[in-house]
Amino acid sequence: MSGNGNAAATAEENSPKMRVIRVGTRKSQLARIQTDSVVATLKASYPGLQFEIIAMSTTGDKILDTALSKIGEKSLFTKELEHALEKNEVDLVVHSLKDLPTVLPPGFTIGAICKRENPHDAVVFHPKFVGKTLETLPEKSVVGTSSLRRAAQLQRKFPHLEFRSIRGNLNTRLRKLDEQQEFSAIILATAGLQRMGWHNRVGQILHPEECMYAVGQGALGVEVRAKDQDILDLVGVLHDPETLLRCIAERAFLRHLEGGCSVPVAVHTAMKDGQLYLTGGVWSLDGSDSIQETMQATIHVPAQHEDGPEDDPQLVGITARNIPRGPQLAAQNLGISLANLLLSKGAKNILDVARQLNDAH
């Protein structure tokens, strides 16, 4: 009898209710805020589980004197976190989706994509230029951005401005803007500013005609071990179906173009009346040469937790077992079709030249 009692006690200790789920994140304040929001949602869904947040620095956090596009290494903000995932030191990792490459290392998958916040870019102005827009900034004003995508589009749109690289986390960039006289304004992701509670610093939100956004911008991705079915089931509740389908289309477009950090590629997606609209573009580094096109596809946005595919093969690095396969494939095909259209119009040449120029500098 006593033996059975011990077995029952052991089973209770090993039951999922007692389990601590370890969540990996970057150390920056924004990353911690984003991770806290994901953990809060998981806690609400699984009140019996405990969650421990483990923060670590990544290569991208450490190399702050070089433009991201020049470092010449993929997975700048993800490699150390993936290493911890691989060694079973954490069970899942919360990322900004735009930091996750469209091809993940073997053994990993994006197990959830959370509801997207505003994906557009924002302009934050130096205190002396508050009330201005990019259009009304004085001639030769210097605007800071760490992104080739932003610089290429904005140089084309605002030729009277000069664009220079600015690195560091959000706090560091804002301090550089406010305390030094080098920059009249800087460009940042609206979602990051909003998550930090800095709505009052948003001086201008850039519309798609001015600057399309990065693939996955404004959404959070939760990376897990691809074979860890328990954790895949656990994080599945975080999937937002519309965000998922938009981001599958965007990531398929980028992957098929073979774009990345070192080339200016941008997108804009919208879901309306059962249609998914995808606009994508590529630019030369100075913005003088560009190709942009829009395509659409009829896609039914499923309700969360309709029964999805059981075999769960990944699409552009994403596993969404609780979302039907048909809409996911339709979104992926839309991204591939748009990429093929741009490639047929000469996108590869623009991107190759951009890559060579970026590598040469």
Score class of each variant (00 low, 15 high):
240 D>G: 01
229 Q>H: 11
41 T>D: 10
249 A>K: 04
140 K>C: 10
119 P>M: 01
310 E>D: 06
302 P>N: 01
217 Q>K: 04
186 I>C: 09
120 H>D: 10
175 R>Y: 06
311 D>I: 04
222 V>G: 01
355 R>L: 10
98 K>G: 01
223 E>A: 03
73 E>N: 07
280 G>C: 01
83 H>W: 14
83 H>Q: 13
79 K>G: 12
40 A>L: 09
59 T>G: 07
56 M>T: 12
303 A>V: 05
207 H>L: 11
129 F>I: 08
55 A>Q: 10
121 D>P: 03
268 H>M: 15
46 Y>F: 12
223 E>N: 11
103 V>Q: 15
339 A>S: 07
157 K>T: 07
155 Q>M: 11
298 T>V: 13
43 K>C: 08
303 A>E: 10
66 T>E: 14
56 M>D: 14
338 L>G: 01
125 F>L: 11
47 P>C: 06
331 A>P: 01
211 C>P: 01
34 Q>G: 07
205 I>Y: 15
200 N>E: 07
123 V>D: 05
349 N>A: 15
40 A>K: 13
246 R>T: 08
354 A>M: 13
126 H>L: 08
237 V>F: 07
29 Q>V: 07
73 E>D: 15
305 H>W: 09
324 P>F: 01
40 A>R: 07
255 R>S: 11
227 K>L: 14
121 D>G: 04
53 I>N: 06
83 H>N: 13
93 V>E: 01
343 L>R: 14
110 I>E: 04
322 N>D: 15
310 E>P: 03
257 L>M: 12
244 L>F: 01
86 E>W: 04
271 M>T: 06
228 D>L: 03
305 H>I: 14
104 L>Q: 08
135 E>T: 11
164 R>H: 14
30 L>E: 01
155 Q>V: 10
321 R>H: 11
186 I>N: 06
147 S>E: 04
319 T>S: 11
122 A>W: 01
108 F>S: 05
127 P>K: 10
313 P>I: 15
267 V>I: 05
20 V>L: 08
258 E>C: 15
128 K>T: 15
133 T>P: 05
346 G>E: 15
146 S>Y: 06
185 A>D: 06
344 S>M: 05
27 K>Y: 08
22 R>I: 14
283 W>I: 05
49 L>R: 07
275 Q>M: 15
166 I>D: 01
47 P>A: 06
151 A>M: 04
221 G>W: 01
50 Q>P: 15
111 G>R: 03
66 T>K: 01
288 S>A: 13
211 C>A: 11
209 E>C: 14
285 L>S: 01
320 A>F: 03
264 P>K: 01
243 T>H: 11
93 V>F: 06
134 L>T: 05
319 T>A: 08
44 A>C: 05
96 S>D: 03
210 E>V: 11
312 D>E: 10
331 A>V: 05
21 I>M: 13
19 R>C: 04
326 G>A: 15
